[in-house]
Design a protein around this nucleic acid. Structure first.
Lengths: 223, 223
DNA sequence: CTGCATCCGCCTCGATACTG
DNA sequence: CAGTATCGAGGCGGATGCAG
């Protein structure tokens, strides 16, 4: 393991935060754990290119910080978010929301995981635009099912199907992120069949409003 | 310059954000620019250890992304935040707020800058705890003067003196961050003279409330 | 078979020297 | 003042090996 850890030596919250989770891959590990417990090999599979020693080092440091913690899970053990890890959610969501604007069209060598859409929805959703609204939308992205509930100007996103969804949306992970990235308009995706839905017709407008989505009027901006 | 930029190759907002500003020193450069325009040598002075080539590389990349931009400033040129840079403020504040909890007592080899306190206040301030409040507080941290204005459940932090402050606070940068880090109670700092203030006596309680500060009742936790 | 540790080549980083 | 050039050290990425 490292003997002389590299740190900024600045008495500042941001520098301390970066010393803790600013190294390469670290926040991506946190992202995975934000979406539920994960085994070591599952993390390896969803973080292609990380290298086994790096993942072990990062997990060790995250556990030492209280961001993550190891626990027994039947066969072997797994990792889940620790107390300090949950408090990283606003940071991860803020950077996700900012970074999605930099995504153009996906290139062939990029990987996508359906559960990342769960994070994307949390980052995009803002219920304050429709404070009076109170309803649920269900998403199926590849084989991942989750739902978004709006109530009293706040949103919550959870895994699994919704009890009473006014709208059910079905698409694949790449299409989903493309819409979030603005590379594809939501109604264009609907028209071309890349996205299908069932439920109340009007609800799609409210759902798009909550997610801050608008169809692009001009030409698609590839990069 | 680098030829083969290292990136995560994930179609995900967080990964894209980290590809852009996740490298070492980058977010600290953004922090400096969030507090106003800076010259190259000023950045070097406030980021000890960065190395001249690294700073040049980071600035070049930030300019290419639209996070920063170069402009003429009388004598020579300087750097300021670009359009994409302002949108990074929530991310920087979120990580600052999280990271400040990891700061213990300052060690001898750590540097502190008074203008970092400006960021710390923005990260800590939450006016929703006192939605009816409408007043200003002025801070002088070393030679840096700024003020916090609360109105209608929102806060704004700006450089310079306040027009009508109900409270004026004077301290040094290290003490200020120690209080934010929880290593020193605000009223303890006041009692020991490390922090002085003038204005309405009651306002200090409201100000501490806005900043989420509470005196520690137990023993100081050094690390 | 999962969960790492070790080893090695390469690229980023950090420091210094140097130039417009 | 504002960077560029250079070079050693170390973090990173990939392959392999080994223990529970």
């Amino acid at each position: 393991m490292r003997v002389h850890e590299r740190n900024y030596r600045q008495y500042c919250g941001l520098a301390a935060g970066l010393d803790a989770v600013g190294e390469r891959w670290t926040l991506l590990v946190v992202r995975e754990l934000l979406l539920g417990p994960r085994r070591y090999n599952e993390l390896l599979a969803d973080l292609p290119g990380i290298g086994t020693n790096l993942l072990a080092d990062r997990l060790k440091k995250l556990c030492a910080l209280g961001v993550a913690e190891r626990f027994d899970s039947g066969a072997g053990h797994a990792y889940r978010l620790g107390p300090r890890g949950a408090e990283l959610r606003p940071t991860v969501l803020a950077l996700s929301k900012w970074g999605v604007g930099l995504l153009g069209e996906p290139s062939a060598d990029m990987v996508t995981r359906p559960h990342w859409a769960l994070l994307a929805v949390q980052a995009m959703a803002d219920a304050s635009v429709l404070p009076e609204l109170c309803e649920s939308y269900e998403f199926q992205v590849d084989d991942e099912i989750f739902h978004l509930t709006v109530a009293g100007g706040t949103v919550s996103v959870q895994r699994g199907p919704a009890a009473h969804a006014v709208l059910r949306i079905h698409t694949d992970a790449t299409t989903f992120i493309r819409i979030g990235a603005g590379a594809l308009g939501p109604f264009e995706a609907l028209a071309t069949g890349m996205l299908t839905m069932s439920g109340e017709r009007d609800a799609v407008l409210r759902c798009a409003g909550i997610l801050g989505l608008r169809d692009r009027s001009g030409s698609p901006e590839a990069r």
